[in-house]
Amino acid sequence: MNRRIALRHLALISGGLAFIPSCDFSSDDILTAYNNLKITQSQKQLLGDISNVIIPAGEIKGALDIEVPDFILVMVNDCLNSEQQTLFSTGLAAFPDFAKQSGGGNFANLNPKEKEAIILSGQNLEGDETEKGAENKAISYFLNTTKRLTIQGYMASEYIQSEVIPYSLIPGAYNGSVLISDIQKPRING
């Protein structure tokens, strides 16, 4: 949360500094809010795109609508060790070329089914000792981590836990033998 505010502030400050000649808004600045990572604005957009393929918008909101990419980057920045962070960043950096090679174009311009196919194949890449193998390992690590954190960030979001599947701090008394057939929950259509 705080970081999101910090990002907003950063945007305001950068805007305020627009008169400084060296401030070039066309460049792809590294996002300083994630100080352990070297993530650029365009990489964050790509991450958002990928998370939104993993959990797309439909009848209810998707990952991008509820700022899941912010959560992913906070978790990668704060909770992974430096080795894992390097793998994640390397995989993220290598993903556009991987997408081009396997899908024949810029990932952002592909249709949802094509994007899904690329992510699924990238998740299953296997690493080996070669340079290419190391890159493949990073891509699959990046995609699998992104999927895991997308699921976590989405399901444990304020939106899901207050509007879709309300979370209760008080779960009620214990029943140690509930017939599953007696549990009826309305189906939620995503």
Binding site: V53, I54, I55, P56, G58, I60, G62, P112, E116, I119, L120, K147, I151, Y154, M155, V164, I165, I180, K185, R187, I188, N189, G190
Partner: peptide, 19 residues
């Protein structure tokens, strides 16, 4: 079921049924 991605995954997450 957390296999796959996309709308199928989303619907599985919202309607957990694997005991």
């Amino acid at each position: 079921n957390t296999e796959g991605i996309g709308m199928d995954l989303k619907n599985s997450l919202l309607n957990p049924d694997q005991y």
